[in-house]
Design a protein around this nucleic acid. Structure first.
Lengths: 198, 198
DNA sequence: ACCTGAACACCGTTCAAGT
DNA sequence: ACCTGAACACCGTTCAAGT
């Protein structure tokens, strides 16, 4: 996304955008909030906090995957939009009602959001690379990507890198989706463990 | 970092760089690997895997904080440099010797690295914003940043956002370092729990 | 093999001038 | 209050020409 391209889409010049927005960063934050609005929030149910938090993370991840710069804008910004606050209240409430102390719930919310955005941002970088390479099919791109890693690892000297060279198949077994799930569930299980023995 | 500025530092033109490197991305990957070389790896000790993994994550986080574009380059790239492979062998070995199955160790390594890089990247975005705002002291910047969040939350209607408005102090209590530690320890504790009951 | 100047095709943002 | 053309100060990369 470039200011000049946005302006072009609106049949105007880039300077005109600055009558409505003070910078590209501000525009991206507005887009971010609008994108968050696409997430449907269920009625919070403390008994199912883990399930609901997981569903929220998956939806947010999906919705952020749409555009590269949005995920970056979501990092290190003050979440100030209406939808952002709405989502924040939902997540925070769920953690509190699950039994977490306010301060720990704050930390947990912060880290969950960072994880989702971080993974989405990495995904969008991959997406950009895919387009740059002229590949259309994500599966084909993934094959290509891990294939290069595998080839490189296979060429490493076994005596100096015994562990990496021995388990190449395991290193490339899981795709991006499975990696995201693994980290998400590790996180949620970790929260649950802290709840049961504080 | 821009190609033109690198060239200037080397008293030459930007075009000259392309005799040594095929793109800016490739140059950044070379910088990334050099930066990883600054991490000192201890003799792996399976009995202290958690402690050693934690120390590694802290060192990597510190070393990545130096330059914004490096953390971004570290995302979504094939880690192909000598130091990168050296570090990968260390982390992977530690996880395996701790008792993890090869496939799960692969996932755990991937997520740990993503977490460290993701947090470092967010930190570098903050750093950039700090410089843009003309602030020199990180403490002052942090005060400023959380102060804006707090003011915004305080102005929210209490009936619509009861949870966020009630715990503003807890929401802004921890700084970046403490947040990083919380997520890191949650991750490591999670791994430990999976090891004890597989 | 390495370097260079000049050019190409872009950026975000500002600012005086217009309505 | 909103819009505009033109300009400023940058980008990454290419390419013919040089050594």
């Amino acid at each position: 996304m470039s200011m000049r391209r946005v302006a072009q889409e609106l049949d105007t010049g880039p300077a005109s955008l600055y009558a409505h927005v003070s910078s590209k960063e501000e525009l991206l934050e507005l887009v971010y909030d609008r994108v968050l609005g696409e997430i449907r929030l269920p009625e919070p149910d403390p008994a199912r906090w883990k399930e609901q938090l997981r569903a929220y993370a998956l939806e947010m991840h999906l919705v952020l995957g749409s555009h590269r710069d949005v995920a970056r804008a979501a990092l290190a910004t003050i979440p100030t939009g209406a939808n952002s606050v709405r989502a924040g209240e939902f997540v925070y409430r769920l953690l509190l009602e699950a039994g977490m102390a306010p301060r720990e719930a704050s930390l947990a919310m912060d880290r969950l959001i960072l994880y989702v955005i971080g993974d989405a941002y990495e995904g969008s970088l991959h997406h950009g690379r895919m387009r740059a390479a002229g590949i259309d099919d994500p599966g084909e791109y993934f094959e290509n990507f891990v294939g290069q890693i595998a080839a490189y690892y296979r060429a490493l000297p076994r005596d100096r890198f015994p562990y990496l060279t021995k388990h190449i198949d395991d290193l490339i077994a899981d795709d991006g989706e499975q990696r995201f799930y693994y980290g998400l569930d590790l996180f949620l299980d970790g929260l649950e463990a802290r709840l049961s023995k504080p």
